[in-house]
Design a binder for these strands. Structure first.
Length: 490
RNA sequence: GGCGCUAUCGUCUAGUGGCCUAGGACGUCGCCCUCUCAAGGCGAAAACACGGGUUCGACUCCCGUUAGCGCUACCA
């Protein structure tokens, strides 16, 4: 490229949902663009009509937007180098195929898929690496013209030069070299008139003035084909950076079967975009110091390709959970409140809220958030880990009953109810003092009352400070629950 | 099979020849705090794949072995 402006692209093919590996590739491209003041471009690689999925493009854009990775040029948004959807650029590819044909660095191939398959089988039998045998390269000009005239379907293949080293420099991996003999005469234009990835990719990257090709490591092996194509056209090579793969816990390439791979899945499970972005940024990249928690804005400032690793990284859900916890904790109350309300309205059906009718005012929810903040990883945990703030206990944890509840407990709690009943607009310290008085008059330790009370109001043996719970629930509800527990726990 | 890439605690990683008796984080375990559970604090167990070189000196450089992964389509 003549200018030194950084232009990078994320070029997914719309075959379904956005894969977390794809999001990572998109993120690194985005961060590199932001860091260098360059442009981040979205290009849709939909040249395989058989794999096209309805709505996939919209979903891709939606998911990228959710993650905060806004593109500067691309479908819908537009830009000076469009269209950004490859299926709308077929004329461009055809024009470039003509150039290659003209230069004799590409040729038409009339071989049928059946013959190709047969050929491959035989090569495999002889333990040769499968490679097109160049039969159609031997066709005379007349034979070619006749075949075209007779309407025989054909593809266009690149003519790979024999026995020359193909070298390129990868920002992450250094110098990489392949011998051209190992490179197949790759199909560039399919018989349906659509280009293959290899052609479309090179043509578009050049035409869109892409300065850095940042993509997954699975593309490293086909890069020689691309390098050759740039040479054929006489174009300057972009810089390459092949990112390490994301792996399953068993170190195979990240896939379904072993968990969720769609960004949508994580979003649906309640993961914050901040956590997911932070997590995948750390998969293959690190700042060089000991910081772990990053916002997207911080990543934009810190990122560099030089600090990207070479080896694959296992997608470790435990750390993602921890990051979700960290990012959730850092959110202001008002934001958490909005998320909690959103969650509550969507889960109304499965829960029967019995506290304070079915509506919880902001003040109430805010106090629940304050009490549970240190104890939740997901927004849903506010309800799942402390359901007692939303409904009276339906059952009492048997293990806790066994440990904290004895024959005298109901008597002691009755004394406590008396003490609580006399309180007027009690504060936390008032409940505490009342409990102390009740314990004293029953001649038991505070713990003998605290634990049963916790069980009575929450049904479980864990949670925020007991007096925080009682204060949040309020005097009436607390007394109601104590009486309920006395009736129900035997 | 061929070609290519990779190789530090279970996992993510720091480390660019002496600072390494290898640092941090997640997870695990223990202790402290404490009405419980968390959070927090403190601490523990836990790694340089192997073998050769190069060098006064290798986790770091080179070679080989092994292992893992990727590619090997008219898919991207």
């Amino acid at each position: 490229m003549s200018s030194d402006t950084v232009r990078v692209r994320f070029a997914p093919s719309p075959t379904g949902f956005l894969h977390v590996g794809g999001l990572r590739t998109a993120l690194f491209n985005f961060l590199f663009a932001r860091k260098t003041g360059g442009k981040f471009i979205l290009r849709i690689e939909d040249t395989d009509r058989t794999r096209y999925v309805e709505g996939a493009v919209e979903n891709l854009i939606k998911t990228l937007h959710w993650a905060g990775l806004e593109y500067d040029e691309g479908p819908i948004a537009g830009g000076d180098y469009g269209p950004y959807v490859q299926s709308e650029r077929t004329d461009i590819y055809k024009k470039h195929i003509e150039i290659l044909l003209e230069k004799r660095v590409a040729y038409r191939c009339f071989c049928t898929p059946e013959r190709l398959e047969q050929m491959r089988k035989e090569q495999e039998k002889k333990r040769l690496s499968p490679k097109y045998d160049r039969r159609c390269l031997l066709l005379s000009e007349k034979e070619v013209q006749d075949s075209i005239a007779s309407g025989k379907p054909f593809v266009v293949r690149m003519k790979v030069p024999e026995h020359v080293p193909v070298r390129f420099s990868d920002i992450i991996r250094g110098e990489v070299e392949f011998m051209s003999d190992r490179v197949d005469d790759q199909v560039l234009l399919k018989s349906d008139g659509y280009p293959t990835y290899h052609l479309a990719n090179v043509v578009d990257d050049h035409l869109m003035k892409i300065s850095h090709v940042i993509r997954g490591e699975e593309w490293l092996s086909s890069t020689p084909k691309h390098v050759l194509l740039y040479e054929f056209f006489g174009w300057e090579l972009p810089k390459f950076a092949h990112l390490p793969l994301l792996l399953n816990p068993d170190r195979s390439k990240l896939s379904k079967r072993q968990g969720d791979v769609a960004v949508e899945d994580y979003r649906a499970k309640g993961y914050l975009k901040e956590a997911l972005v932070n997590f995948i940024a750390l998969l293959g990249w690190n700042p060089g110091d000991e910081r772990e928690i990053f916002t997207l804005e911080e990543l934009e400032k810190e990122f560099s390709l030089e600090r990207v690793n070479k080896s694959g990284a296992v997608f470790n859900i435990e750390k993602l959970n921890w990051l979700n916890f960290q990012h959730l904790r850092r959110k202001p109350d008002t934001e958490v409140l909005a998320m909690l309300k959103e969650y509550l309205t969507h889960s109304q059906n499965s829960l029967q809220f019995t506290v304070h009718s079915s509506q919880f005012d902001d003040q109430y929810l805010l106090s629940v958030i304050g009490a549970m903040r240190e104890r939740v990883t997901f927004v849903k945990d506010f309800v799942e880990k402390s359901p007692y703030f939303f409904q009276a206990p339906k059952a009492y944890d048997p293990a806790v009953v066994k440990k904290r509840w004895n024959q005298q407990t109901p008597e002691h709690l009755k004394v406590l109810v008396d003490e609580f009943s006399q309180l007027v607009s009690p504060q936390k310290k008032d409940y505490e003092a009342a409990l102390h008085r009740a314990a004293e008059s029953s001649k038991i330790g505070n713990g003998g009352l605290i634990h049963p009370l916790r069980l009575a109001v929450s049904g479980m043996g864990e949670g925020p400070g007991l007096f925080d719970i009682v204060l949040i629930l309020g005097k009436e509800e607390t007394i109601r629950r104590i009486n309920l527990a006395i009736e129900r726990i035997k």
